[in-house]
Design a binder for these strands. Structure first.
Lengths: 251, 251
DNA sequence: CGTTCTTTTGACGAGAGTCAAGACTGGTGG
DNA sequence: CCACCAGTCTTGACTCTCGTCAAAAGAACG
């Protein structure tokens, strides 16, 4: 129940996109132990306000951070791909500020806070890397605020697809990725209704920006899509040094 | 040019709302030095993408984090009151992900990253407190995402006023606070137009929720306002232990 | 004491929501 | 292996919240 090797390698790779992790620190991260758990689609595994004693590393599938309004409206505030630690924040703030829910069949690895704190105590470099991850997460939240507050449905949808493309590692023509969220989930990320998301996706398809089949997306014209979505990948800091981004460049 | 005493005390007090800072750490924070700078209203003092070597402590006035869209739409992603370190994040991510602008005549204290890093290096407790501040900032961003994505203009406006009331330290009937943002600024926080914000404020006034004169707000019926705005202050973590909140309680 | 920025109000229009019905899809069991 | 069924996706017609445009009154500032 603890085949932790491969998932932790994924996590380490993500950290190394943004932080310098030396060999010693890398080994420490890879030697973390955790309990693998399978979560079916649309099941919450962390509830609002719940006090957790472990962080959840996404191994496979897709996770969303959820909030809901009094009238039953749902809003997804963030999504987490394999290799993301869904609630790294919980190390310093154990009372969950939002629910975590699997958007599709998902495997997570529960990593105890105790082990993670051990790590940050002995390796200040790791503590800083974790802090930086929190900061990058916050930068994504800021980008969503701009998206929700000031962009129309078309631009907004294009921007989200660009973000997903970048975070799955390919901001270029022909990049194809599996993103197992339903259109209802996309609507809850975009502050729209599922009906309207459907219309926007139809638009993107008929205009040759993307191809969609099942839950697989293919970027046909990256430059055009990024321009439409007013997308600048700098905030994701996926390029090294967060400065010159050659994998994720826009006109 | 470095009357840093009082402002740093404010900053320390804010940290202590959420973290345990011992006497030694407290002294270290109070002994920070910085340069005080006056910024006139509507002037940016950190630009998008700029690389900064200092964090900006708000001493007096009001600061907003800004983004703008291609068509010239502006969105404020966060505001910072006196005592807030506006870009604590810049310690680990020096390339600014957003512009910082004074919303009114403002005094800031520029605190060098070098000094702050010195602090976090020698005092792991401070490093963790800073991380937690980043996490709370992120929680506020999440609340704004829900607000922008899923609440109508009325609810949204009420929620923002509740947040401001809580952050200025008084979530109760009769609490009165100065918040020097124009209705245009409020609109840029709420993803609305200034015209519509005006209508919402008029509504809140005529229905006896608040009183507004100049840039001063007074809460008349806190419970009712919080209910209208679907406001739950837990995410701000201003109550001790972030658990039982008696100063900031809702029905 | 004028000039500029803000606030206020009204009439009208557009983008996104709502409601509803039908087509498609993938997973399950017979 | 096929048929069913629940969950998605798709489309159209109508509604409504909020944006747009405009003009005037009020406040702040030099």
């Amino acid at each position: 129940m603890d085949i932790s090797e491969a998932p932790l390698q994924l996590f380490l790779n993500k950290l190394r996109l943004r932080s310098t992790i030396n060999a010693d620190e890398g080994r420490a991260i890879l030697s973390l132990l955790g309990q693998a758990v399978r979560i079916p689609a649309n099941r919450a595994f962390v509830r609002l306000g719940e006090r957790v004693d472990h962080a959840n590393l996404v191994v496979e599938g897709l996770v969303g951070r959820f909030a809901e309004t009094r009238e039953g409206g749902r809003q997804i505030m963030a999504f987490h791909l394999p290799g993301d630690m869904a609630n790294l924040n919980s190390i310093v703030a154990p009372a969950a500020g939002a629910a975590l829910e699997a958007l599709a069949a998902t495997t997570i690895l529960r990593v105890p806070h105790a082990s993670l704190r051990e790590l940050t105590r002995h390796h200040p470099g790791i503590a800083e890397a974790f802090w930086l991850e929190s900061v990058v997460d916050a930068a994504i939240l800021e980008a969503w605020i701009v998206n929700l507050g000031r962009r129309d449905a078309m631009t907004r949808t294009a921007h989200l697809i660009c973000e997903i493309a970048c975070r799955t590692g390919g901001a270029r023509d022909g990049h194809s990725f599996h993103f197992p969220a339903t259109q209802l989930h996309l609507a809850d990320m975009l502050g729209l209704t599922a009906v309207h998301v459907n219309r926007m996706l139809a638009n993107l398809r008929t205009n040759g920006f993307i191809r969609v089949s099942g839950r697989r997306f293919e970027i046909l014209r990256w430059q055009a899509l990024a321009k439409l979505g007013e997308f600048d990948p700098a905030y994701l800091r996926v390029g090294r040094a967060a400065n010159d981004d050659d994998t994720c460049k826009v006109a």
